[in-house]
Design a binder for these strands. Structure first.
Lengths: 146, 146
DNA sequence: ATGGTACATGCAATTAATTGCAACTACATT
DNA sequence: AATGTAGTTGCAATTAATTGCATGTACCAT
């Protein structure tokens, strides 16, 4: 699989450059196990090239996000996480604001929502990786009991 | 209308306190025209009471968000905005990542999504104020032309 | 292969947001 | 009304993220 060269191609055709720093950030994202923070990616890259700057990491993540190669998600823990989109495929999270439990949500729900919005307004939404907050079944029942 | 005293009641029954600082922040949120940043709220409150601290503003917004009295939304401009939920009712935004145009989205779409999720998993999602990014009809057509 | 240029980088400085802690205060209970 | 306590505040320090700018470099066109 030539994900690496594919990505380089995408960068070039969109007027961006495939710099060594970017390739290292890409590698960190692709080999990482999803949900990486900017700081974690930074640390990873620093191992082989200690002179990268954190601002380069943020800027690269911004570009990759724009190109929809990575998704950015705040899981409610306070830090923003980044994930290589093709790595895990589209997926979503339901996060309980009472007990912080995280469960996953099938993409189909959002696929349908996206299709509806698209059909009625022409706007094509990016629904790659959502964090939806709310109250889980257990906490809700417990709250009702009081 | 006794929104003010209602809110105070909500605060008290949930184990929080109705401090003067909070009442001023509440007033700023209720009189403001939606989509206020923490800094804007801070400035507003400082007019009558210059000794508040920005951390108090953030902490109060956190509490109000938890109680779902305000919604927090990143409109993609880089700053997080807060809005008094009952002030404008539930509404959502479609934001084009190409031309930055912002249009609104009827709540019904998300109401339906919420009902579905609730029915199948028991998880009750908060879908008060979403910012959905994507590509608007105009930009999409323009992109296809190339 | 070379050169020009638009894009990227690193650094430093700035702004946004969070956190630890001692002092303080709202308010439920008495 | 007085009191105890849990919750809150302001301050200072920290961490996260962004931005301006001069220098550097990828890569397209020749």
């Amino acid at each position: 699989m030539s994900c690496e060269t594919d990505t380089v191609k995408v960068l070039r055709t969109t007027g961006h450059k495939a710099t060594p720093q970017r390739l290292m950030i890409l590698a960190a994202l692709r080999h990482g196990s999803g949900h990486l923070t900017a700081t974690e990616i930074f640390g990873e890259v620093q191992v082989e090239y200690p002179y990268v700057d954190i601002s380069t990491v943020y800027r690269t993540l911004g570009v990759l996000k724009e190109l929809r190669l990575v998704s950015e998600t705040d899981m409610g823990t306070g830090d923003t996480t980044y994930e290589w989109v093709q790595h895990q495929g589209r997926h979503h999270h339901l996060i309980c604001r009472n007990c912080d439990e995280v469960t996953s949500l099938d993409h189909q729900y959002l696929e349908d929502l996206g299709a509806e919005i698209m059909a009625e307004s022409g706007f094509k939404p990016d629904l790659d990786h959502f964090a939806i907050f709310g109250v889980c079944a257990r906490c809700r029942l417990e709250a009702e009991r009081n």
